[in-house]
Design a protein around this nucleic acid. Sequence first.
DNA 1: AAAATAAATTATAAGAATTATCATGTAGTA
DNA 2: TACTACATGATAATTCTTATAATTTATTTT
Lengths: 144, 144
Amino acid sequence: MANEQLQEAVNALKNTKVRMTPQRHAILEYLYNSMSHPTADEIYKALEGKFPNMSVATVYNNLRVFKEVGIVKELTYGDSSSRFDCVTTDHYHVICTECGKIVDFHYPGLDEVETLAEHVTGFEIESHRMEVYGTCPECKTEKH
Amino acid sequence: MANEQLQEAVNALKNTKVRMTPQRHAILEYLYNSMSHPTADEIYKALEGKFPNMSVATVYNNLRVFKEVGIVKELTYGDSSSRFDCVTTDHYHVICTECGKIVDFHYPGLDEVETLAEHVTGFEIESHRMEVYGTCPECKTEKH
DNA sequence: AAAATAAATTATAAGAATTATCATGTAGTA
DNA sequence: TACTACATGATAATTCTTATAATTTATTTT
């Protein structure tokens, strides 16, 4: 449930020096309820109604804060602007290249990739990211 | 051998409408001899001595041309600026979250992830991407 | 080999995304 | 309630990248 995760995130912030503000709550709420990966500007535009005076800088600042605390991840897909996603550690994403649908995909054991990378490169590995791309069943049938 | 690959790339360009110029040759040469994944600006600065009048736009334009021909790949993760890589064999990337450095990382067998995803989700899988994030040895020592 | 043409280069301006600055406002605490 | 440290909002500044247009250069044609 998205709301539980949101509550968890809010609690995680309570344990830090990070204050809860209406703007921050709204940004988190939007992130946790959106199944997509919004850009900073999309978040900004989505909250324009609720916060007509909110600055873009506030969105960027808070996304950075959330990143530092570890509850939000920044994804760079290759277009000009970054996208942001709540941190979910227990699954990967399968993404439809036709309609953009994102499906969760549980797959165990890629920790060994991190371990190997650590040995081979000498890096201190913190995380990894994987996405699988393809065509979802719906879009597949539409093609025929 | 890097020089053979460079020659191959030059020949590949001969078969297209793309003309060979001293600037282009220098950019390709730098890319094929560098084991790193330079940014456009790094390439620009590296060739400043040889081509004092070369414009940054030339670097960007030619990287785009090389991308279109398929001999260079653009990597958009890590820090703010793109990095460029000669297209060779398949490998994954390990990215430093401090300085943005990208290191190649050979790891076999993630095709099985695609196969499993196909079965579990019903998608017709086409590709996947994976990156490993951490701190490189240089940045690690700088922290102390 | 010289002239014609098509494309590449350079310098610069423009654009977009993100970050910095700083005065003002507000959340959390004593 | 008042205090203090942090957050916000408006705007300026920065950074990376692309667009424009005049000049130069590589290839083709004669």
